[in-house]
Design a binder for these strands. Structure first.
Lengths: 235, 235
DNA sequence: CTTCGTATGTGTTCTATCACACATATAGAG
DNA sequence: CTCTATATGTGTGATAGAACACATACGAAG
C-alpha cells in the first residue's frame, strides 16, 4: 500500500516487531504528516486509525467545561495514539493534539485489531506501552498536586525534548501554559529563572535547551520515575 | 480450591464472566480479608497475585521521596488490583493500600495469565477495565491541577461511596488529606463547610453522606466524567 | 466517671499562584 | 524600513493553601 516508509527515525514500537508481524502490518501502514495544533482525535470521538508518531509529538489533553486545559500525557516515537482501539473502549474522553509537527504512521482500526488479537509480540508491546503510559499519567496526577511550577516546567521540557529529535523546541509560553494547566505569566517567570541560570534560552516561541543535566537537577523526581519505568518496559 | 465463595456482593469483573471461563478460574480463586491500612502491593515489588475486591476498597497511592503522598486511583468491586500482571510489566511504581477493610478474591499470577492469554471475555473485560482506570487516573491528574479542595473532596467522597456499600465512611480527615495530597486542616475546613450545608456529617473518623445529590452538585465535573466512562465501558 | 490518645477546631503568618492590566520587544510581511 | 500581530516582561492586588502552633472535644478503656 505504501512503498516507501521513512528509513531511520521509525516508531519504536513498530521497529521492535519481529519480521513476520511487521510484514503483515506493513501493508496497512500509511505515513501521514500533521502540522502543529492539528487534532488527531477529538474527545469521545470514535477513531478510525491508530497513530504511531515517527518524528512528531502528540499531546493528550483534557479540556474542562470552562475551557481550561491540561495535559495528561505526551506521546512520541516510543508510543502510539489510539489505545482505546485495542483496549476495547473505542473512544477516550480526551483530545489528542499535535504538539510538534511531523510524520506519523497510521493503521486502520480493523487491521490493528486483527493483529492485536493474534496475541503475539505486537499485543505484548502495545500492552506494555499502555502500562508505561499509565505510569506517565499517574505521575502527572501526583506531580500536579505536589510540585511547584518551575519543577513541573523542567519535567515537561525534558519529556518534550526526549520526544523531539532536537534541542530546540518550537513553542510559546502561552502554549506551554495550556499544557501545564497554569497561567502564561507563570510559565514566563519560571522560564526566565531557568534562562537566568543558563539552563535554557528562548526567544519568541523558540526554546533552546542549553544544559540538560542541570534541567534534570531542577526537575522534580517525576521525570526520572517515568523515564526509568518506560525504559524498563520498552527495552 | 475454595468451596464457598461469597454469594451476593461479588466482584463485578468476575461476575461478568461467561460460565465456562468462570469455572476455569474458580478453582484458582481464593478469598482473603484485609484490614485498613494493609499494603496489598508495595511500589515496584513483583506481585504474586491479582486481587479482585469484593466489599473492600483499595487505594492506589504514590509516595514521593519526601514522604508526601497522593492517590492516583481507587479500586472497588468494579475492578482489579494488579494490572501489571497482565499488561506485561510485572510491577508498577506505586503502592496499593486497603482504604476500607473487607474481602478480596485473589488469583495467582500464573493462573490469571493463562486465562488472559486465551483472549476470551476475561481478556476483554480486564482490558476495558484498565482503560476505565486510565480515565480515572487521567481525570485525577487534571482535577488536581484545576479544581479547588472542596470540589475535589466531594469528588473523592462520591467515588469512595460508590465503592463502599454504605453511606457511612470510616476515615479521618488526616487519612483523606493523604489521599488528596493536601493538608489535614484543609480537609477539616472543607468538610466543615459541607457539614454546614447539611451535605455530610461527621464525628471522629466517621463520615456520613446525608445529601448525595447535593454532593454531586458541589463536586467538580470530574466525578461524572469518570463515572460515565466506567459505566460505558463495563456495562 | 475519669483518663488519655486521637480527631478536629482555630488562628496567624507566609508563599505560590491567579487575575488583570498594561508595557515592551521581536519577527515577519509589506 | 516600517508596520503589525504576537510573544514576552512587569507590576499590583486578591486568594488559596501550606506551615506551624496550639486549643478543644470526643470516645473507648479502665
Amino acid at each position: 500500500m505504501n512503498p516507501q516508509l521513512p528509513a531511520q527515525p521509525e516508531n519504536r514500537l513498530l521497529a521492535a516487531l519481529p519480521p513476520e508481524e511487521y510484514e503483515r502490518l506493513r501493508h496497512h501502514m500509511e505515513p501521514i504528516s500533521l502540522s502543529l495544533g492539528e487534532v488527531v482525535n477529538e474527545s469521545g470521538e470514535k477513531m478510525n486509525y491508530v497513530y504511531f508518531p515517527v518524528d512528531s509529538i502528540i499531546s493528550l489533553l483534557y479540556t474542562m467545561l470552562n475551557g481550561a486545559t491540561a495535559e495528561m500525557g505526551l506521546v512520541g516515537r516510543e508510543g502510539v495514539v489510539g489505545i482505546a482501539l485495542f483496549m476495547g473502549g473505542g473512544t477516550m474522553p480526551n483530545r489528542a493534539v499535535v504538539q510538534s509537527a511531523g510524520t506519523l504512521i497510521r493503521i486502520k482500526a480493523k487491521a490493528l485489531q486483527n493483529e492485536f488479537r493474534r496475541g503475539g509480540t505486537f499485543q505484548l508491546l502495545l500492552l506494555k506501552y499502555t502500562q508505561a503510559l499509565m505510569t506517565q499519567i499517574a505521575q502527572t496526577a501526583v506531580c500536579n498536586r505536589l510540585h511547584p511550577v518551575e519543577q513541573r516546567l523542567c519535567r515537561w521540557l525534558l519529556m518534550t525534548q526526549d520526544r523531539a529529535q532536537s534541542n530546540t523546541l518550537q513553542m510559546t509560553h502561552e502554549f506551554i501554559s495550556n499544557m501545564l494547566g497554569i497561567q502564561r505569566e507563570a510559565v514566563s517567570l519560571a522560564a526566565r529563572r531557568l534562562q537566568g541560570k543558563g539552563v535554557i534560552s528562548y526567544v519568541r516561541g523558540r526554546i533552546k535547551i542549553l544544559d540538560r543535566a542541570q534541567l534534570e537537577n531542577d526537575s522534580c523526581e517525576c521525570y526520572r520515575v517515568v523515564k526509568d519505568e518506560q525504559e524498563r518496559l520498552l527495552c
